[in-house]
């Protein structure tokens, strides 16, 4: 349990650094560390597969792409758009509403139950695969179709752009 509190503290600490860092590249690197603490959380929950997939997909691929796009952008201070006061006030009100909602829902739920896994080995690759491909086959297939259509859409958008340029 102490490990959990330590890792949870680190997660929140790095998450705050993500939004408070001045330099966007530093933000991304803190985000990498945040995701790394998530991986440790999954391992603590005995969800090895989820842990390692989080490690590979989020830390190894998605955040590399984030970093990649950031490096290509112009990061000078003066090129940053200055937001009007109206947007700032709207953001404060929106954030306040969100905070109230979260606090209210936390109060409504009461103290969370300690995690008791029915099957402590559920997170292992074998068991997870069996559950995914029997009980949850339909949602699994539907989400894969969603991903496929997103990929096709992205390719379509990219080729349309280049056609315009050549024409």
């Amino acid at each position: 349990m102490n490990t959990f509190y330590f890792i949870a503290f680190l997660s929140i600490f790095f998450a705050i650094l993500v939004i408070s860092a001045k330099n966007p590249v530093h933000s991304i690197l803190y985000l990498v560390l945040t995701f790394f603490t998530f991986t440790i959380h999954y391992i603590l929950l005995n969800a090895q597969f989820l842990a390692i997939v989080n490690f590979i997909v989020y830390m190894g691929a998605i955040l590399v792409l984030f970093l990649y796009t950031l490096m290509l952008m112009n990061l000078n201070r003066d090129s940053e758009p200055v937001k009007s006061n109206l947007i700032k006030i709207a953001a404060v009100i929106g954030g306040g509403c969100f905070l109230v909602t979260i606090v209210a829902s936390l109060k409504a739920l009461g103290a969370s139950q300690p995690v008791v896994l029915q099957n402590p080995n559920l997170g292992l690759v074998k068991n997870l695969g069996k559950v995914l491909f029997s009980e949850y086959l339909l949602p699994f297939e539907i989400s894969s179709i969603l991903l496929l259509s997103a990929t096709v859409g992205a390719v379509l958008l990219a080729t349309k752009e280049s056609n315009k340029q050549t024409a």
Binding site: I52, M59, G60, A61, V64, V125
Partner: peptide
């Protein structure tokens, strides 16, 4: 028991 995936994760961090 996810040895290969671990290797894969380390490789993806290398960049």
């Amino acid at each position: 028991n996810v040895g290969i995936l671990y290797i894969f994760g380390v490789v993806s961090l290398g960049v």
